[in-house]
Design a protein around this nucleic acid. Sequence first.
DNA 1: ATCCTCCCCTAC
DNA 2: TAAGGTAGGGGAGGAT
Length: 1016
Amino acid sequence: MEGKEVVEPGGSAVASIAAPGEPWWVEAARPKGAAPERYDWDGGSFKAYMREKNRKLQEQNEKKRAVRSSDAGKTHRLFEGLAIHVSGRTLPGREEIRDLVVAHGGRYETYFTPASCTHFVCSSISFAKAKQMKTQRHRVHVVSADWITKSLQAGTLLAVSEFFPDCVQDPGQTRLRFGSSDGGNSMAPKVSTGLSEEENEQHNDEDDDGQEGSEEEATEPPVETARSLRTTSENPDFVRQFFQQSRLHFIGSFRARYEHYLGIVARNLGLGSAADLVRGNPTLPQKSTPSYGCESGSTGSSRVFVHVDMDCFFASVAENLRPELKGKPLVVCHSSNSGPNSDSRGEISSANYAARSFGIKAGMFLRKAQQLCPTLVSVPYDFAEYERLSVCVMTILFKYAWCVQVSSVDEAYIDVTDQPFWPVRCVRGGIDSNANQASPPRHFNPAANAELFCAHIRAEIQRVTGCTASAGIGRNMLLARVATMLAKPNGQFRIQDSEALAHISSLALRDLPGLGYRTREKLAEEFGVHSVRELVSISRARLQQTFGEHAGAQLYDGVRGETTDIVQPLKPRRSISAAIGWGVRFGSPSIPSEREKAALFVAALASEVADRLQLAGALAKRVSVDFLRKRPGAGPPFKPLGHGICDRFSFSGTLAEVRGFTEDSFAKQKANLCAVTREFWQGSNIPSDELRGVSVHASNLKFEATEPGHSVVGMPNVVELFERMQKGGMAVKAVSGRAGVSGRKRLRLDDHDGEDTGNDDNSGRRNAKSLFRAADPAAAEKRRLSRVQLQPTVVSVDSDLRLSQSLRLSKARREGYAMLGADAFHGLPRDQAMQLIHDIDVNYKMQGFTQMQAISRMPISRLNFQLVKRKAKSREEAPVANGKTKALTIADTRRVLPRKIEESKILPSLWLESSTELFNPICDWMDAVVSARIDSRLSEQDLCPTFDHATGIIAGAIERAVAFFRLKEVSVLILSMRDYILRNQCRSDLFLVWYYQVLDRSSQALHMCGGLQAFR
DNA sequence: ATCCTCCCCTAC
DNA sequence: TAAGGTAGGGGAGGAT
Ligand SMILES: Nc1ccn([C@H]2C[C@H](O)[C@@H](COP(=O)(O)OP(=O)(O)OP(=O)(O)O)O2)c(=O)n1
Ligand SMILES: [Mg+2]
Ligand SMILES: [Mg+2]
């Protein structure tokens, strides 16, 4: 029975089916609407993205286009972003229009659906249909064929209104399939036994059927005609169409596109081709810092994490596009079936907060949502817009920080601990919310001013995208994530260290990131645990026994707000896959054409994966292919055209090795992949009419120029380019990823849900400030606001630049992980490093500043504080290390520092004043210097510092720095910045600048730390 | 011990 | 009408 006329998988038949075409949302994303205010990722990226894709994946099409483009001139891409369908007889004819459209960058749609087409070409149309076109949810332009030809002649897209086709009374034919006019549809037996309902209410798991199952769905489909567009059976374009419409595909594949953007940006920045990106930019030093993952991130230093997540992202975009719906209950969903009697099983992707108040959540059927809220409005997807805005958001984040991990289409983590100070325009000591260009920027440390940082970023996001974002701040990624939940919607929240437990235990179990359905079920079964509080009482050992060593520990730690996760800006993908489990319906295998179609479908997915591999520049070693087969006795799926209850048949194997990263190799890989997949399919012996889903998964990926120890593809360059995007961005520390190995713990994030907390009250601010104010709850909010107003004037240059990293370098080599980042400084001659530091430095206004000379090696035994007035001319270098070392004690520092300050005649008399406004900045500085970096808290005393006490704090900070960095030598420079202040009209009365330079005992790495503080 | 492979689970 | 995809972490158990 299995004829060998199964189509050649690598052959052209497959290629034409799969015809990948760029993701339309990317395509469509760029030209849409006005360019975002100003933080466009890079105007050309999207275009470049498609150019690249086209180049790689659409050779044939390109050729076709080339034929026409000779006469096309600059109209070459005229139809870019358009999807055009031709209906009925036209002049010129359908074929010709198709060729024209394709030749000029557009897409031709064989089938019409309002969702997939932008233009509907016909010579005449009925009034009714025309009206429908205008009023339906998806706007489709109806035009005559002239519009195509005239636009081409004109070299520009002409107004569609001028080319509306003739209207006729009632053509009686041309039955558009999307209408409700399903008339004599003979299929879709309404055999809705209780079974399907069961499945509906259940968790939608395959195993929960078990029931009688007498009612076979044998009646279901073999061949249908009216609905055929939606199934694999009759629609050779199904794969593309499906992916085009699938929200899960959209969010699932975001990462791949994001990776791709990085490549584009790299190239735009002159870093060469994608291949060069992978290979490493030869102009850059090849090494990089290992630092992050192996030390600072994990070794108990205190860090500050920020998590940013868009509020009901899709829904919020929808509200902006339909302003009249703002604030009304609204969901984003394919179906528009309205009214409480609707029977729509369309899944809700996102619900706005008005809708959530009815209990409506993502994943819910529209039908159920409409029962909950009869006035609910359903708005269709606009993936292009989500994509555009998502990139806007991420660009904003990268503008202010490089240590950003984009974890999904609408959220990201930032480790702000070591991020560059960011500029804020200020007026009269407060934030200039109008970003008045005239006002001088001040610089703030995001770690010490995380609230302000978040507020700033959120405001910018809203300004640029029109959508609100929420942010969470916490000591680790988990707490930041949870804080975001508590902050939503449109708020921000910090989980204080001391309150982590309290906040976590206030959550429902299901709100703990990583704790899903199965885990809750097990917890209930095994331990009778139904709440966080109960979970806390379970011992680590018991959890490990049930969930495994790692998972159990994670659960144990997670429920206590602990995790060791770190922010990883870039991780190369370790697998690439494509799967479809919806709409898969073929006729009986006794019909040869049905067998053939099924085989083609399977091959199309394999081909799709091959294309994705190529786009990522990856060669795969392992491939595994899964088939979903309707389980015998399973009833109809509760979701129309869903896979229903299935058995999974899994096949895997190793691909023949392909060498090199040429076009040829990828062609071979595709052929191999398709061949293997086809064999699996044939070997499975699954009858075509029982196939419900296919997935093709490639793993063990190899990327170009992946050398041992450098398996993190392109990371150094990408980090570099983010810095350059930030222009003058600072430091340069980045993540290292381990080559192939997992190795890290995690507790995952986000379980969306109708959480209604929405509480933005920053109740217990750090003891520092709260001590100054009465515990008046009403004042809390006010205080928060005023606090933002009263930010420290300038806190700047808090560098921790590793100037030498030889030890880390060799360690990284030994351990085979990639390094990147900070070693931009590595091996730089001292003066160049200084130059860099200078560039990094706040306003570039520090010229004439002598701190660089001040940095010199001094053994601790001769700890020598130099105090100089600004512009102190030539100070001779302090004596060079004499080799002796001695622990720097706080006593030493305390003894010397005050004396030196006093000698300098820079009397910080203001410190003695007990004005709250005055001390807020001081406290913030302490945050910057002490708590963020060296993990110390301010004591009560700190809040009313005497001179002694204040200098003591500085001394303490230095001491801790010595311990933390294992310093051998320290030199400290403190100088007055009074001139600077006056010149820049700062309202500060005293600036303190201090730098110290240190030698790491173990690695001989030279550190330079410093701070600049202005006190008002 | 450390790997790999074949799952299950989770999040968006 | 409706578009139930994608990728990573980690456990169990076997191969090395
Ligand atoms: N089951 C889901 C979950 C999410 N999404 C999409 C729609 C969401 O808008 C987007 C982002 O997911 P979030 O979990 O961040 O949810 P929202 O942004 O919609 O809401 P929230 O304000 O809770 O973040 O992903 C989806 O299609 N289906
Ligand atoms: Mg969100
Ligand atoms: Mg999200």
